[in-house]
Design a protein around this nucleic acid. Structure first.
Lengths: 335, 335
DNA sequence: TTGAAAGCGCTAACAC
DNA sequence: GTGTTAGCGCTTTCAA
């Protein structure tokens, strides 16, 4: 109800006046700083409650010299790995008092400086960014304004926490090769800096096996784009017997496209995704996928962020995790 | 690189000094306010760029009288409907300059005042909350500190945007009744205020049909909880032939539990979810589900928030949408 | 243990 | 079109 809301929210001064102490003490009391007697504290909290006082984080942030808030940028809220990364970051920060400010990209198809800018303007002390699609120079530019931890993508000279995409992609392709596939296509996302590792690794593995790589780029990383792109790929005369997709969403889209064309998985088409999302493991989906341990990446990123806040001059961290191929029944020998 | 970062970020004053004008003009220029000559504007932007100036949103927020930021609280980042709600809210706000501040609950199992508090402390002008699990009084308390729009849950006297859960649940149960089921169980989430509508509606529909309702509450709204609860339910001697779940995640967990016990869907068990998430529509999942049009709820909530900001005294909005049962192949006549 | 006072970087009257 | 000025609510020395 709008009507019974006070016109002006209570401030520290109001509480101080009510109790008959100075603002300083109220400030100390609320931050749990030492030097306030227990009685005073009680009186302050009681008065605060009476007045409906809420600390103003905006004002506190402004007054504080040291910026300790952590900004977290997430590329795609519909992709589970970002939820996992968020959990991981929270785990890492849970013991610390740092505030976490979230920023989710509004474009699924590429660079979104706006979302990161808003974090910079919110004056966070450090930004954890998962996943940056911007060109390397742009990332360096951002990192010049505020410390940055890049998650899922290594950037030279910038704190980076990522999974070995080269290893993951190779494992996927080799799995298909071992099964006897030769017409293996790759469904990539749009080609952004730092997002071509899986693709390059796929292409290398193919060439090393004496095969011709065929890469198709989807418009973005969503299931819908995957569906569209896969429809093209599968409509070809000499269609591939296996497709390795940049992520699970593209793979799920591919799967729908295949079924829509009357193809069966894995009989007519073997399929591999990347992320090992919950959906991939569902009965009836059983999608072979590469697990990049997103929650662990997030946790590591959170720890690195805290260290960076403590020590701005330390050399850039570079933490690489090894992914794991999870084989399910979406892959089999070619017919 | 940490080393080439300036110790103190540039401020409006720095830019003003560099250009040789007053801070006011810099402020006006950056906000696009009228009254700054084009030349001056150019000079200001050039200087800002040179100095690496970034507006400080924290300071701006503090100085501004009128709070226009919109805070969005999301209960569960892993549930697609919240991503849909976010999209909808963004659509509604896209024409307006209001900043959107996100807050995601850290507990999936219940009330999370902390996440809402942080929004209050961030001094947002209004909070859009999806979904509040707190008791009614608690919601009223929050709404006393800051205008609130409750999404997916109607709260008397508070702006509410929701879907007709009673209708949705009835449609689900009636679908199962029509198919000939009599042992229909309901898998609910934990019983929170405002989250018993689907359950009550289920129970009513059952009684009306002369049947005995059997409701089981999962620990929270996740797939894992659904799995656990369903395992109990399906382990019974006289197990149900159909289960209507509070949401898709619980339904997917139920599905896994069923398959793990060697049951087949829909042959041995008919299953209905709620949310009509993307996963529900995948080939091989084909989950019958109730679509509550989350994106539309989000958009309506965004619009209502903007109106409330303009007119604090207007009577509380109450916008109810009608859901739609989407029948797929997870439901069939009992064996 | 407490208080006074000087900002933090910006906005928004208001005056020129 | 441009400048002056008084805060916004809080933190944080520094003194008492």
């Amino acid at each position: 109800m709008a009507s019974d809301r006070p016109p002006r929210p209570a401030t520290q001064s109001d509480v101080a006046r009510e109790v008959g102490v100075s603002r300083t003490l109220v400030s100390f009391a609320f931050r749990g700083a030492p030097g306030v007697s227990d009685e005073t504290k009680q009186a302050i909290f009681a008065a605060a409650k009476r007045l409906g006082y809420r600390p103003n984080a905006v004002a506190a942030d402004l007054a504080r010299k040291h910026r300790s808030a952590v900004g977290l940028y997430l590329l795609d809220i519909r992709n589970e790995i970002y939820a996992d990364i968020l959990s991981g970051v929270r785990t890492a920060l849970s013991q610390e008092p740092n505030r976490l400010i979230l920023s989710v990209s509004r474009s699924v198809d590429g660079e979104d400086r706006g979302a990161v800018e808003s974090l910079i303007e919110a004056r966070v002390g450090i930004i954890i960014a998962a996943t940056l699609l911007d060109p390397d120079e742009a990332v360096h530019e951002m990192a010049a304004s505020v410390p940055l931890v890049s998650v899922t993508r290594p950037v030279a000279g910038v704190d980076s926490v990522y999974s070995d995409d080269s290893f993951g992609a190779r494992a996927a392709v080799e799995h298909l090769l071992t099964l006897g596939h030769t017409r293996i296509a790759h469904l990539a996302g749009p080609a952004h800096d730092g997002h071509v590792v899986r693709r390059r690794s796929y292409e290398q593995a193919m060439r090393r096996a004496g095969l011709v790589p065929q890469t198709l780029c989807a418009d973005d990383f969503t299931q819908e784009s995957g569906h569209r792109a896969a429809a093209r790929l599968l409509g070809q005369a000499d269609r591939p017997t296996a497709i390795f997709c940049h992520n699970d969403q593209l793979a799920l889209g591919t799967r729908e496209a295949a079924y829509a064309m009357g193809l069966s998985i894995p009989r007519d088409l073997s399929l591999i995704g990347y992320d090992n999302s919950r959906t991939a493991g569902l009965h009836g989906i059983d999608l072979t996928s590469v697990d990049l341990h997103a929650a662990r990446l997030g946790e590591a990123a959170g720890q690195i962020a805290l260290e960076r806040l403590r020590n701005p001059e330390a050399p850039a961290a570079d933490r690489r995790f090894t992914p794991r191929l999870v084989v399910r029944s979406s892959t089999a020998r070619p017919a």
